[in-house]
Write a protein that binds this DNA or RNA. Structure first.
Lengths: 143, 143
DNA sequence: CTTGCTGCAAACAGTTTGCAGAACT
DNA sequence: AGTTCTGCAAACTGTTTGCAGCAAG
């Protein structure tokens, strides 16, 4: 699965005429080794620790490429930072965000997806993507 | 309804020991006269045009108060600006956001709300609030 | 050798904060 | 009078951009 993603990015690069660089390889490796929902800042520091040379801007630029290549997805959780999560083909999930401990639980619900499609078509709307986040307290924090 | 909101804010101010100031009155008036989903920046310029003296910071600070007082709600639509919408008691709606013309359609769906509650309780999660945005093209833009 | 990519620093946008003076109560 | 609120400017945060030098093809 990590190899698949690397291949996907190679294909994307080839298609777009992008070059293969040491930095992009490193950033991809480290991104693929992370958990879900890492912020650019977090990733940047993770990268810095093993590869001090890499600059802020490169990390931002490269993550945009990953998103464009379809292997990462930008998410925004109201804390003023852009996060990226791993894209798993054909799967879409939403988030329960704990405002106590900032943990994130993922969930998927087909019925909701179906309802969304209905609502959209009722308004003549063509869905590109959607986000749903539920904010509150997780089982641990609500006590 | 506008009077209700003014009263609500007065009550809130009294409860919190806040002062009634010319600026807060003006900002509330203009906020109440706007459409849904106005960004702080937009509101600030609207205010500036009739009341040049009012500062950036005051608008930000005052909108936070409105949110705290329960008559406005912060929303974030991924364009890097904070927007505020009017709170209508007991009502919750979500958004269809057109990425073509930036128009926003509101909708409400009880079944989705119900499913959200189910999902949350399945995870032992206590909901405080939630947001759902569907991005895509509206009827006009998709042609 | 050509062109894209990188790192740095500076620029940027939106928002927050510190502070002296103004304005409520 | 006492304290909160305001306006300004400066600070801050996350992100983007310009550019000279570096490196991939």
């Amino acid at each position: 699965m990590i190899l698949e993603k690397k291949k996907a990015f190679n294909d994307f690069s080839a298609r777009k005429g992008l070059r293969s660089t040491r930095q992009r390889d490193i950033i991809l490796d480290i991104f693929l080794s992370t958990h879900q929902h890492i912020s650019v800042e977090e990733l940047y520091f993770k990268i810095k620790s093993s590869n001090p040379g890499i600059g802020h801007a490169t990390v931002y630029r490269t993550l945009k490429l990953f998103a464009e290549a379809g292997l990462a997805r930008e998410i925004h959780l109201h804390d003023g930072q852009t996060r990226y999560e791993h894209v798993v083909a054909g799967e879409h999930h939403d988030h329960l965000v704990c405002t106590g401990c900032n943990s994130i639980i993922e969930f998927e619900d087909e019925t909701i997806e179906k309802l969304q499609n209905e609502i959209a078509s009722r308004h003549g709307f063509q869905i590109k993507n959607h986000k749903m986040e539920i904010y509150g307290l997780c089982a641990t924090c609500k006590q």
